Computed example of a mutant assay.
Amino acid sequence: MNTPGTILNPVERLQVALADDMTAVNALIRERMASEHAPRIPEVTAHLVEAGGKRLRPLLTLAAARLCGYEGVDHVKLAATVEFIHTATLLHDDVVDESDRRRGRPTANLLWDNKSSVLVGDYLFARSFQLMVETGSLRALHILSDAAAVIAEGEVLQLASAESLATTEPVYLQVIRGKTAALFAAASEVGPVIAGADDAVAAAMRAYGDALGISFQIADDLLDYGGASAALGKNTGDDFRERKMTMPVIRAIAAADANAAAEERAFWVRVIEKGDQREGDLDTALDLMRRHGTLESTRATAYDYAARARAALEAVPAGRLRDILNDLADFVVARLS
């Protein structure tokens, strides 16, 4: 709980401004994650859903609907839909990545098993589609179902591009648009849609969510090479150990190629493509990134996408919620300061 005089960050301000709506969303999530015949479903789901996540994606849906003047209840169903989709992807991701920590806690696949994580993820996807249909909005169903497909596509693309030095920056951006920005964009767009707002406002909110999601993911990828483990909810250097081709690495490899640095190239081939990682390799990777300025350039790119998100908001109705969303774009990259 915040003490008197505490300055709230933008996520906390959204939580306060939308407290009643979020109470309804959380109640609906608990109701719909229940299962009469398979008690493991609520056990696995509750472990992740109730692990203290910020609920940023459903907050975007609620905020976008309210800033467009929506007074109904379907935004609650759409917000719960968004959280179910997100939780399902996390359950699947942890299996694919063989992760053992999520939000600072052991992952579901570690506590139960991979089969349970995959199948419960599938259950949540099914629940999300039930909720979408209940709103009666074909357009909202189209937006969120498209997002679900793009998310799956992005994960497969990441799987195909991982451990390959041939992965380019455009491919990386396509991956993070799928794994992160697609749901941010859809969560932001369905609010105006359910509120019956002008197409221009819905498009602006989609652009906001897309840019915000890209900025958010680039910042996360950069923090992996210098963030506090507690803040990340995972171990610093996990992406390196998992041989993921993120922006700082891609740019460091490109710099090595541009400078015909054969020794550097050989290092990246060994640790990324061959997976032959030794003690001290993470420090070497960091030294190479600093030498070529790829950490700084990646930081600049994250800030650029945050600026794009703020610019998109100029087309949406003014007010307190728009101000908070504007500050949120700064907040997702403030972690890099």
Score class of each variant (00 low, 15 high):
Tyr123Arg: 10
Leu325Arg: 01
Ala152Asp: 00
Ala65Gln: 01
Leu18Arg: 07
Leu165Gly: 05
Val44Trp: 01
Arg30Asp: 15
Ile143Asp: 08
Ala230Trp: 01
Asn9Leu: 05
Met245Pro: 06
Glu134Thr: 08
Ala256Thr: 14
Ala306Gln: 03
Ala148Asp: 01
Thr87His: 08
Asp220Ile: 03
Arg278Tyr: 05
Ala17Met: 07
Arg320Thr: 14
Leu159Asn: 13
Leu328Ala: 00
Ile29Ala: 03
Ala149Gly: 04
Tyr70Phe: 14
Ala318Gly: 13
Val333Asp: 09
Glu43Asn: 09
Leu321Asn: 08
Ala302Arg: 08
Ser164Ala: 12
Gln15Trp: 02
Leu111Ala: 07
Val82Leu: 12
Gly196Ser: 02
Arg320His: 15
Thr87Trp: 03
Lys244Ile: 11
Ala211Leu: 05
Gly233Glu: 13
Ile214Tyr: 01
Leu62Gly: 07
Gly52Ser: 00
Gly227Pro: 01
Leu144Thr: 04
Trp112Cys: 07
Thr107Cys: 13
Gly196Glu: 01
Leu138Met: 14
Arg335Leu: 10
Val190Asn: 06
Ser164Glu: 15
Ala255Tyr: 05
Ala203Asn: 12
Tyr172Pro: 11
Leu321Glu: 06
Asp283Gly: 12
Asp97Arg: 13
Arg32Gln: 07
Glu153Met: 05
Tyr305Pro: 11
Asn326Gln: 13
Arg299Ala: 10
Asp239Tyr: 07
Leu286Met: 10
Pro58Trp: 06
Ala252Met: 02
Arg310Phe: 03
Met1Gly: 15
Leu8Ser: 11
Ala63His: 12
Thr236Lys: 13
Leu8Val: 06
Leu288Phe: 15
Ala219Arg: 03
